[in-house]
Computed example of a mutant assay.
Amino acid sequence: MAAPTPVRRGAARHSELFDALVELLLTEGFAHLTLDDVAARLRCSKRTLYTLAGSKEQLVRAAVVRFFARATERVEAAVAACATPADRVAAYLRAVAAELAPASARFVDDMAAFPPAAEVYARNTAAAARRVGELIGEGVAAGDFRDVPVSFAAEMVTATMVAIQQRRIAGATGLADAEAYEALATLLLHGLARDPATPARPSAGCRS
């Protein structure tokens, strides 16, 4: 078997560094960290960091983009493993909660205070809200949810998700973002549930 080329080894090293950077920022936040601090934590040189991005600001934004991209992949995988609309909505919101769970309060606060990172979070929140709206629409069309106005349900979800992203929910309730998404999942699913007098389709659950 041929040995990996230097290009492939370099790409793998960059990927490992980015993953380690994301983990570091999730745990410690980033506003207080200098590039020297980051290099020391990742056990690499500042020169190596500059191969990833040209400045600390660019490095942070790239790490936040990577965090949400990887999270989106895992969330959609959780949805794909479910058979019914109710299971898919629950899986989506609870997978979002699980992805946000490792994020420290310091990281989330730093994102909110750093416009390039806040923009990435806002963009992903908007995309997530649209996705939940799609899933609700599928459930209503299939007869698995109440015949609620899909646009209203989607707008309600969007408003709540934006409030979570903007830290208004945390400020008002003390809930972490992951906890708020879990609460949203519970409230939404109970609100969408069919009338108990109307037989519901059996749930096939999610594939493990």
Rank of each mutant, 00 (worst) to 15 (best):
A2V: 10
A2H: 12
A3L: 14
P4D: 12
P4R: 13
T5E: 11
T5Y: 06
V7D: 11
R9Y: 08
G10I: 05
A12M: 11
H14L: 01
H14V: 03
H14E: 13
S15N: 12
E16I: 09
E16A: 14
E16W: 04
L17F: 10
A20D: 13
A20E: 11
L21S: 03
V22C: 08
V22F: 00
L24T: 02
L26Y: 04
T27E: 15
F30I: 03
A31H: 09
V38Q: 08
A39F: 05
A39K: 05
R41F: 08
L42K: 05
L42I: 02
K46G: 10
T48P: 09
T48N: 00
T48C: 00
L49H: 04
L52P: 01
A53F: 08
A53S: 14
K56D: 09
E57V: 00
Q58V: 00
L59T: 03
A62W: 05
A62E: 08
V64R: 03
R66A: 09
R66V: 09
F68C: 04
A77D: 13
A78S: 14
A80L: 12
A81F: 07
P85D: 03
A86G: 15
A86L: 02
D87N: 00
D87G: 11
A90Y: 02
A91D: 05
A97S: 15
A97E: 00
A98L: 10
A98T: 10
E99A: 11
L100Y: 04
A103F: 07
S104M: 03
A105F: 10
A105G: 15
A105Y: 05
F107R: 06
A112V: 06
A112M: 09
F114P: 07
F114Y: 12
F114T: 01
A118Q: 11
V120N: 04
N124L: 06
N124R: 12
T125Q: 03
A126G: 13
A128Y: 02
A128E: 01
R131V: 08
R131N: 00
V132P: 03
V132K: 04
G137D: 01
G137T: 08
V140A: 07
A142Q: 12
G143E: 04
R146W: 02
D147H: 08
D147L: 05
D147I: 07
P149G: 07
V150F: 04
V150H: 02
S151H: 10
S151G: 01
A153D: 07
A154Y: 07
M156S: 12
V157S: 03
T158E: 15
T158S: 13
M161W: 08
M161Y: 02
A163D: 12
A163R: 08
Q165G: 15
R167K: 13
R168K: 14
I169Q: 07
G171C: 10
A172T: 03
A172G: 07
A172K: 10
T173M: 09
L175N: 04
E179A: 15
L188G: 01
H190C: 05
G191S: 12
G191M: 06
R194W: 06
R194T: 07
D195W: 00
A197T: 11
T198D: 14
P199E: 05
A200S: 14
R201D: 15
P202Q: 03
A204S: 12
G205H: 08
C206K: 05
S208Q: 13
